[in-house]
């Protein structure tokens, strides 16, 4: 970890004023300190956000939930309103990392979490995301943990967050503040596909700071589940995960939100699958069918081809488990 200057502003305005091309904000530090130790991120200035407040969770008048950037993953996961209205988010958060890391990690930090691609994480290796134009080591290297959706010829790195998958399904807005004022960025537009510029990961300008994430109002009567599949039972990034939110009328699906993790270069909304499901009967067979649609455009590589089937399984099971809650609820 190289030397840097630590700046500890006490207002958002000062924090933005302190930001530059060679600086980085720090919240919990679970990503930044890790990557600074590896030499992957080497900011000259680290701007601390811990004195900025931004640690409230509030319900807005329109029913949306406004989450301060600094709310820890632990607190967000166990917030009574989140547990009641957005259980899929609570489950996703609790499936990520570990108790200790969740106590540190912040909401904004999780939105800004960076890929776990080991080639990205080693400055000695070529990586288009870290050093544009140097090539992608994973393409011909080991790519078991890499993405099959949203990839480009320049980058196949997976977005690692669980929280973001749930937020993608719920629908959210990222609120940012910069020198030119406040912007609201729809969650699905916040993270960028790698395309020709995998070094550009998000729609955030260099002076901007995430201040809040606002969740869409919960779908009335929705049932949901977050299912995470991985090698060991805990403390591992997803090989495939699915956040599923469904509303039903009788046996018919009236609305569906399906988001995927572990298989894509950004938190991934399976919009084709969602569209195909709405209006259909909520049956296991239908879930399997729409799951296939989600991976129609998948580009598997040498070691990650299994993620296509695993991801389909995640969708089908997550939908089934969500719908089962509804039927159990009816029986109560």
């Amino acid at each position: 970890m190289q030397s840097f200057e630590l700046i500890r502003p006490e207002s958002v305005k000062d924090a933005i004023g302190a930001q530059s091309e060679r600086s980085a904000y720090i919240g919990g530090g679970t990503t930044l300190v890790d990557l600074m130790k590896l030499g992957v991120m080497q900011p000259d200035h680290v701007v601390d956000t811990n004195r900025l407040g931004l640690d409230e969770i509030e319900v807005l008048d329109d029913g949306r939930l406004k989450i301060g950037a600094r709310v820890s993953n632990s607190r967000l996961a166990t917030d009574a309103r989140v547990e009641r209205d957005y259980p899929v988010l609570s489950q996703a958060l609790l499936s990520g990392a570990s108790t200790g890391l969740r106590n540190m990690a912040t909401t904004a930090g999780n939105v800004m979490q960076r890929t776990r691609c080991p080639y990205f994480r080693d400055p000695a290796k070529p990586c288009n995301k870290r050093e544009p134009g140097t090539g992608c080591s994973a393409m011909d290297g080991i790519n078991r943990n890499h993405a099959v959706l949203g990839t480009s010829e320049h980058c196949i790195a997976t977005h690692p967050s669980d929280m973001c998958v749930a937020m993608a399904a719920i629908g959210a807005t990222v609120v940012v503040e910069g020198r030119k004022g406040t912007r609201e960025i729809p969650f699905e537009d916040f993270h960028l596909l790698p395309g020709d510029h995998p070094e550009r990961e998000h729609d955030l300008r260099s002076d901007e700071l995430i201040t809040h994430v606002v969740l869409d109002a919960p779908l009335e009567g929705a049932v949901s589940t977050y299912l995470k599949l991985r090698d060991r039972a805990s403390y591992e990034f997803a090989l495939a995960s699915c956040a599923a939110i469904v509303t039903l009328e009788g046996t018919k699906v009236t609305a569906a939100r399906i988001a995927l993790g572990g298989v894509a270069t950004k938190p991934w909304r399976a919009v084709d699958a969602e569209a195909a499901l709405v209006g259909e009967d909520a049956t296991a067979k239908m879930f399997e069918q729409v799951a296939l649609l989600a991976f129609q455009r998948a580009i598997p590589l040498e070691h990650n081809a299994f993620k296509v089937e695993l991801g389909q399984q995640a969708i089908a099971r997550a939908l089934r488990d969500a719908v089962q809650q509804a039927s159990q609820g009816e029986h109560q």
């Binding site: 630590l6 500890r8 720090i26 919990g28 530090g29 679970t30 300190v33 890790d34 680290v46 601390d48 811990n50 632990s74 570990s98 108790t99 200790g100 890391l101 106590n103 540190m104």
Partner: peptide, 13 residues
Amino acid sequence: GRAMNSCLLLAAL
């Protein structure tokens, strides 16, 4: 009172 990984916590913070 809350468990944290001290290897990722800057001492200054």
